[in-house]
Design a binder for these strands. Structure first.
Lengths: 237, 237
DNA sequence: CGCCGGATTGATATTGGTCAACTACGGTGG
DNA sequence: CCACCGTAGTTGACCAATATCAATCCGGCG
């Protein structure tokens, strides 16, 4: 009974207890536990079920023929791996776990039915798709224009705000279970450089990161240092 | 009477003459000509009308406070600037023209009505949204992992295939009206480096580009050199 | 003719990548 | 209990890609 999805959607559209029930209903079907570093689905697969992340972190990623890998999005609790994708013949990217992940598998028809019955949910899901698209564009700008330190800071800000929106932060800290290798794949820099950049942010007092726990003593400061503008997340309510 | 939108959507969903009529109908309302280097809409604006590109090139872009700019997507004839966005309160990015652009402005209600009447169109529009999202992810991977030459080659391949899908290529060439500064903003490299990288591709015989006209003597070769995989475009039919 | 935007080129500075070693630490089998 | 191993993190030395700065060139146009 995790409720992250409800919390997230509630930012996009005014939701009621009834909607919460409907979502819980959806999530209460098949629940699967996937261990870390496994694919939830892979490039080329045919979409069949819709996977909702209940717990743990996953990511979208693309691999080039020669093995280079780019993580293109993080999937946190409350996110959907493949909402809407069942229209496509094949997935054009993969989704893999970063930690152990618990997903709810939903049949597209069931989701469809729920959405038809609840227009507010329909709107909320629709908006969450828009936000995902906006986030992808923000990542393009992040990787294309920002220097390593800003880039990493931007990622930390995004993660913190997204986790906050689903109630997974404390005062000024949250879980951050990615390894430095994974961060390298997400930021488009080498893992050695991730390590050094991390040091810089630490010695600048902007963050601390130990034992998979991220602390941001002054979020405003980190946002300023990273030129982070939160509007693309559309967390408004 | 440009028909690019119809040609594009016809790749996503089996369309008929009737659908073509419906689309022409939609596009026949307000038509606006926007000169080069103007915004069609700007970051922070409230979405009101839906803009369809009939002719010319535009782009989505984000600017950082200090002036750095990243182009996050190209909008070619047949593309929509802001389909679906009217759900959002404010735009989180801007759309600007690269050349003189002719756009059709459609009221969301009119589009909605057409889509309700024609499920095949609804599906096609839906898919075009998915493709746009997939393209954004491809750009993340492109900028994050590829070296300058591959990156530029990837862009050329994408543009060529997208223009081909709407009937805007000849044998092995197409228009390519971007300046080197604009390419720099799209690829996340400096304009000087764009120039040198372009030289490399030219001397490697992979492309020629003169007077805004791009020629790709051997598309297979360019795709291989750029590690380009076309599946994210979902041009299947 | 003179100006201007874009393209081109050279010289030099930085950032970030690569390779390789070494540390820290938790888990596992003997 | 300890030797061993694997994963993740850290560090140093060196190298390659790309940025920056500054000229110069070129074609179109008032």
């Amino acid at each position: 009974m995790s409720d992250r999805l409800f919390q997230k959607l509630d930012h996009y559209s005014q939701l009621s207890e009834e909607h919460r029930q409907a979502l819980n209903q959806l999530e209460s079907g098949t629940i699967v536990e996937v261990e870390a570093r496994r694919d939830i689905f892979s490039h080329g697969d045919r979409p069949e079920r819709i996977n909702l992340v209940l717990q743990g972190w996953a990511c979208r990623y693309v691999t080039l023929e020669d093995g280079r890998r780019q993580i293109t999005a993080l999937l946190l609790p409350g996110d959907s791996c493949d909402l809407r994708m069942y229209l496509l013949r094949n997935f054009d990217h993969s989704v893999g776990t970063l930690t152990t992940v618990r997903v709810a598998q939903v049949r597209p028809e069931d989701l469809q039915e729920t959405l038809t019955k609840h227009p507010a949910l329909q709107k909320a899901f629709w908006m969450s798709g828009l936000v995902e698209e906006a986030t992808a564009r923000a990542w393009v700008a992040n990787i294309g224009q920002r220097a390593a330190g800003e880039r990493m800071g931007h990622l930390f800000c995004e993660v913190f705000l997204r986790l906050q929106a689903v109630g997974l932060t404390e005062e000024n800290s949250c879980e951050f279970p990615m390894t430095q290798d994974q961060m390298a794949d997400a930021l488009g820099i080498s893992s050695v450089h991730v390590n050094r950049t991390l040091m810089d942010l630490r010695t600048a007092g902007l963050i601390s990161l130990r034992d998979k726990k991220l602390t941001i003593p002054n979020l405003e400061a980190l946002m300023a240092a990273s030129l982070f503008e939160p509007d693309y997340l559309h967390i408004e309510r």
